[in-house]
Amino acid sequence: MPQGILVDYEWCSGCHTCEMACAVELTHKDFPEGHCGVKVHEEGVYPIGGDKWTDINMPVFTDLCDKCADRLAAGEALPSCVKHCQAHVLEFGELEELSKKLAAKPKQVLYAL
């Protein structure tokens, strides 16, 4: 079954934990230096009319993301970024299940990996 990661970016605080968790994962030792499977895009803070403001952070999964296949094969339950995410905005699973959750609330993105 195809798998993916559902991102509830409404609550992504931009803490960079996903990037670091990916970079230090033991099964990712051969990644090119300075790069890993996810990178947080920071849109920045600005007003969008009236008293409303925006500050969107978006984890972007790169071609280095291997869904922590070796880590999961060794018995871990979750990819390292999903496990460590401080705002609990990442969910790993089968696309079919995740796509149902995608419809449940706005400000989400589903990565088919």
């Binding site: 934990t17 230090v24 460590h84 995410c85 401080q86 609990h88």
Partner: peptide, 12 residues
């Protein structure tokens, strides 16, 4: 609950 920030993840 299993969460961690960049500083402890990079303790090495």
């Amino acid at each position: 609950k299993g969460r961690l920030c960049v500083r402890c993840l990079d303790l090495m």
